[in-house]
Design a protein around this nucleic acid. Structure first.
Lengths: 269, 269
DNA sequence: TCGGGACGAATGGTAGTACCATTGGTGTGC
DNA sequence: GCACACCAATGGTACTACCATTCGTCCCGA
């Protein structure tokens, strides 16, 4: 980014250089999905660096889901590119204090249009999967995990069948993060609503009715948004009622460590 | 993801645990932008792990732009959340072999709608920045870097003023990656086109004409897409012509290393 | 001949130490 | 008062050692 960067071994950090090398290897197609990489000791030898310097790179790649490591076995290149954004996106949400409404709002901007596209070009296989996810939700009863997984697969399939891979990746991650947030606050997915909307969306896609698919998807997300806000309101009310009764909130476990760090650093300054 | 995961120190990997801790610290607001963290030696002491185990975590955070490290100085929490997705997104594009058209297509799906929103709610400050970027492009002459930076700032400002932060972040990264791809293939940004479209978009936003802003943005991106494809076509033609003349392509430097790795691993199996 | 269990090599995970280059502040000498 | 030299602290890298886990192999017994 800064200077010429053409010559070998100019960037100061070995980590950056190694990551660059890995990128090259991936872009060349040398590293294919499922491919077993040499051991860390061999790799470090090959690159001419110590294992100490190599390991952080492997950690970075692992955290992005590019590779998977297993003790006693080895390192494999994972073919699933969708997981690359999962962790970083979580950090983004953390740093930006992104709310779940914002996630739904963002989905609302894109998914209806993608549903319309899906109605135009979805294949038989896609329709089959959609039908299966609906059946899965019907069979799930009150099992939230099953409902959520089926819900994710439903939307993910629509995203995929829309043809735009990048959007598919992006909003798959966003959707899952949204579900994680909801689970953290013990917010339930309304099975009946989900089922009804999914059926409507599925029908319009099956009939290749793009505009109706778009409208149904929009309605679905708007409804989900409303449910989310209502649940949050109810939760806030509950908390208020409880605090009025006098019972203080439960302790937070991680606070002490955080304060210790802050004091340490403050001492430095 | 697997089991209960409620108790302390259950997850096998220290790296994961430490990253989790850092996430907690960030979400608690203990770590604020610009904040100087304790030295690695102190931190490792504090967390009760060795520096060997801590360093990969710092590398991960650094690569996502969450922190910045300087030898002889220390580690600082960077407040800029937008850079979190930069590297991971590049890996995604690498693994998915995402093309520049796909990037523009994705922008095309979202940015027009955001431009419409921007027309409705942009502030005076936003308008000022937009006007400045246009002036910058006018003053840039044929300096591609200045044009690109001004172009980025123009679109970024519109994304920001639309109100949806997440979309802003996402498409800021996508836009920059697109520019990187174009620079890698030595594709120029057409200054005249850019200038004309930016002026049109700016005018419609200034006049709070949402539908026209949306249309202008759409035209802008469609035009950019066409230019991109045309340039690629020209490049392919040129390459073909050159190969017919008999001159072989230049050597690729990184191939030998790649092959060495592959042979090493193959030997293992 | 087949099956199971024990052993061992290889792998990633962690720890400790040492040294280097860079940085920023401190203090000394002009 | 200023400039220079010095020094302590920091992140960067390397080497070594050891641990827990995994997988394959070999040997023993049925």
């Amino acid at each position: 980014m800064s200077a010429g960067s053409s010559s070998i071994s100019d960037k100061g950090d070995l980590t950056d250089w190694l990551i660059l090398r890995f990128k090259q290897l991936i872009s060349e197609g040398t590293l294919t999905p499922g491919y077993k990489l040499p051991s860390e000791r061999e790799l470090s030898l090959h690159f001419g660096v110590s294992r100490t310097s190599l390991r952080p790179v492997m950690k970075v790649l692992r955290m992005m889901g590019v590779i998977s490591q297993r003790v006693g076995d080895g390192t494999y290149l994972s073919g699933d590119a969708s997981s690359v954004l999962a962790e970083p996106m979580e950090f983004l949400f953390l740093l930006d204090e992104t709310s779940s409404e914002e996630l739904i709002d963002t989905r609302l901007m894109v998914e209806p249009a993608l549903a319309a596209k899906a109605a135009e070009q979805s294949t038989k296989e896609h329709l089959l999967v959609l039908r299966q996810t609906i059946a899965e939700i019907e069979a799930a009863g009150s099992d939230q995990f099953r409902i959520i997984e089926a819900d994710l697969l439903f939307h993910q399939t629509i995203l995929q069948s829309s043809g735009n891979r990048l959007c598919g990746r992006l909003f798959q991650v966003i959707h899952r993060s949204l579900m994680n947030m909801m689970m953290l606050t013990a917010q339930l997915v309304n099975r009946d609503h989900t089922l009804a909307f999914h059926q409507a969306i599925f029908e319009s896609i099956r009939q290749r009715n793009a505009s109706e698919a778009e409208r149904n998807m929009r309605d679905h997300l708007i409804d989900a948004r409303a449910l989310l806000l209502r649940a949050r309101q109810a939760e806030a009310d509950e908390r208020l009622r409880r605090s009025i009764r006098g019972a203080p909130r439960a302790v937070e476990t991680a606070k002490p460590a955080a304060k210790a760090i802050r004091s340490r650093a403050a001492r430095k300054r």
